[in-house]
Write a protein that binds this DNA or RNA. Structure first.
Length: 602
DNA sequence: GGCGAACTAA
């Protein structure tokens, strides 16, 4: 390091800094050495000092120096200083603009970021492949796909579509806004796809309900000679967790060991979640115990792992251990704990945690915690307490909250409060047909036919939207996926024959399809047909078909199981003497000999 | 010359 720079690094005052420089030959004061001096700055004061020196020596007139100064300010989150410098620059180039836009995007000052970007474009400049990804990041973080589309136009206008950074940012933006098809189109058009582009695309499928496709893409990526890194493995672990694919999970684990990737806190935590959601809470615990560094996410994930498997006590045991290791619980830690309590029926314990969270740990309960409590009380048969709690809930109630309350009312047959919950749900989610059907059924039960008719009218005036649900089943290390009414499976014909044969036996066992769970404005026959082909039923039928007697059938669904399918699987487990493990968005359900251990109230 | 992206818990 030249002496001049060493002086700056050792935090000497500006006076000695310039004093020193006077004894250095002038040619050593070049922009290049100046820029490397800036990299050494650790605090705002140091940057300020070098900045002042740049002004006194007129070095600030050098664009490279000024840009780097701005960049260093931004890197230290001193956006105010960066802006001040930016606005005083009498000459700017693309780097200046992109540093400013990028700095604002990274610190989350979205409004100002877009303002600057607009100014940039308005000045007639041609935005380049550095600036565009930053603006796309803003669209991504604010989920403004409309603006994203505008930027996409700009990309074409400036001919930047084949730049790998721009294209990856576009894919990422579309993915995070939920526009998976657009993302895929951009992705497919990319001539060279790097590791990051594959990662964002794969994460997109995992996130948006098609983890099967995510894993297919992962294999294709490797065929293309791209070597995965840790970040990619986190993404793939996430996809395995969504898919519940134990075989794939083990492959991922082996791969991580083979490559000697250290289990850092992010990868380790992702693997805990992966194993838990693939059905092995023990494997999750093994990873947990092996991790050197654990953060609050790691602990919460392990608690939630115990929670979804119904091991409430084990989740609770972790809590004091976490405190002892010096980690403070956060909102999600308490969601995990309360959820574990509700799944295991630990009412008093749950209530204790709920009462202490604000007082002792300064985590004020939010709507998610209240939802857990409603669920806990409802399942435990304490509807009165649930009602009392609902009346004293100081937070804004969301869909999940009312859903839990409605569930509680349904177990206890309380029509008056069920109506209240259903009405609230309708108001919150006017596009969800399910709640109209629900409320209409509640009215029908108490013979309020006028209200039933009103609901029907209201429904037809609204556009009905149903979220497609997928079910997966892993057989001989292979994943098979099904949609409602799926005919794509190669053994589709046999599957439907199996379902037909089953339905005859089911009828004898007293099973009546519960058409409440299908659309309202189709006739009864269609409803029955629709119901008959629910994705979890197709998966169950295929499981029966393709696995030997006595083995457990393992099914995963990305949405919550409906009451009808729950009943269906209970009966199937009785009729066929098969164990069915079913994981939905919420928890594991174990169907055995005609009953379910999940504590659900269907 | 100076600027760039992806990942963990509910």
């Amino acid at each position: 390091m030249p002496r001049l720079l060493a002086v700056s690094y050792h935090k000497q005052s500006l006076r000695s800094f310039s004093a020193c420089s006077s004894i250095r030959p002038v040619e050593s004061l070049n922009p290049r050495s100046f820029i490397s001096a800036l990299v050494q700055c650790r605090h705002r004061n140091e940057i300020k000092r070098v900045h002042a020196y740049a002004i006194t020596t007129s070095m600030i007139r050098n664009l490279g120096v000024a840009n780097k100064l701005m960049y260093i300010y931004a890197e230290h989150k001193e956006l105010h200083d960066a802006s001040a410098l930016f606005s005083r620059m009498d000459q700017r180039d693309n780097v200046s603009w992109s540093v400013m836009v990028g700095g604002l995007a990274k610190t989350g000052d979205y409004l100002r970021c877009l303002e600057i970007f607009r100014e940039f474009v308005r000045s007639g400049a041609r935005a380049d492949n550095f600036t565009i990804p930053f603006v796309l990041r803003v669209c991504r973080d604010t989920e403004s796909v409309r603006m994203g589309l505008e930027i996409h136009h700009l990309v074409y206008k400036f001919g930047l579509q084949s730049d790998v950074f721009v294209a990856a940012a576009l894919v990422d933006m579309y993915v995070k806004c939920g526009f998976l098809e657009n993302a895929r189109k951009v992705f497919d058009k990319m001539r060279t796809k790097d590791l990051v582009s594959w990662t964002v695309m794969i994460a997109g499928y995992a996130e948006c309900g098609n983890p099967g496709e995510a894993l297919v893409l992962f294999d294709r990526m490797q065929e293309n000679g791209i070597v995965p890194d840790k970040v990619m493995m986190v993404t793939v672990a996430f996809a395995c967790a969504k898919l519940g694919a134990m075989h794939k999970a083990k492959i991922v684990h082996e791969y991580i060991e083979r490559r000697n990737f250290s289990l850092n806190v992010i990868l380790g935590t992702a693997m805990i979640d992966m194993y838990a959601k693939c059905g092995s809470v023990d494997a999750a615990r093994e990873i947990f115990d092996r991790m050197n560094e654990k953060n609050v996410i790691t602990w919460s994930s392990m608690m939630s792992a115990y929670g979804i498997h119904g091991h409430g006590r084990k989740a609770i045991e972790l809590f004091p251990q976490m405190l002892e290791s010096g980690i403070r619980p956060n909102r999600i830690t308490f969601v995990s704990i309360l959820y574990a309590c509700s799944h295991a029926g630990l009412v008093d314990e749950g209530r204790q945690f709920f009462n202490s969270m604000g007082r002792e740990y300064l985590v004020e309960p939010d709507v998610k915690h209240y939802t857990c409590m409603i669920d806990l009380l409802g399942r435990a048969g304490r509807l009165d307490e649930a009602i009392e709690l609902i009346e004293n809930t100081p937070v804004e109630k969301d869909e999940g909250f009312w859903g839990a309350f409605l569930g509680a009312c349904r177990i206890h047959g309380n029509i008056q409060f069920a109506e209240k919950a259903a009405k609230a749900l309708l108001e919150l989610c006017p596009r969800n047909s399910g709640y109209y059907v629900l409320l209409s059924n509640i009215y029908a039960k108490s013979s309020r036919w006028e209200d039933v008719a009103k609901m029907r009218e209201l429904m037809t005036s609204m556009r009905v939207k149903k979220t497609p649900g997928w079910s997966w089943i892993e057989i001989n290390n292979e994943i098979h996926q099904f949609r409602v009414g799926d005919k794509d499976h190669p053994r589709s014909k046999e599957i439907y024959e199996m379902l037909k044969a089953l339905s005859e036996k089911l009828e004898l066992a007293g099973y009546v399809p519960d058409t409440n769970f299908v659309l309202h404005d189709v006739d009864e026959e269609l409803k029955a047909a629709y119901l008959y082909t629910h994705s979890e039923k197709l998966a169950t039928a295929y499981g029966l078909l393709a696995t030997p007697e006595g083995t457990t059938i393992r099914i995963i669904k990305n949405l919550r199981v409906c009451g009808d399918c729950h009943t269906f699987m209970k009966l199937i487990s009785a009729i066929t003497q098969r164990e069915i493990v079913f994981r939905d968005a919420n928890r594991f359900h174990l169907f055995k000999e005609g009953s379910c251990s999940c504590g659900d109230y269907w």
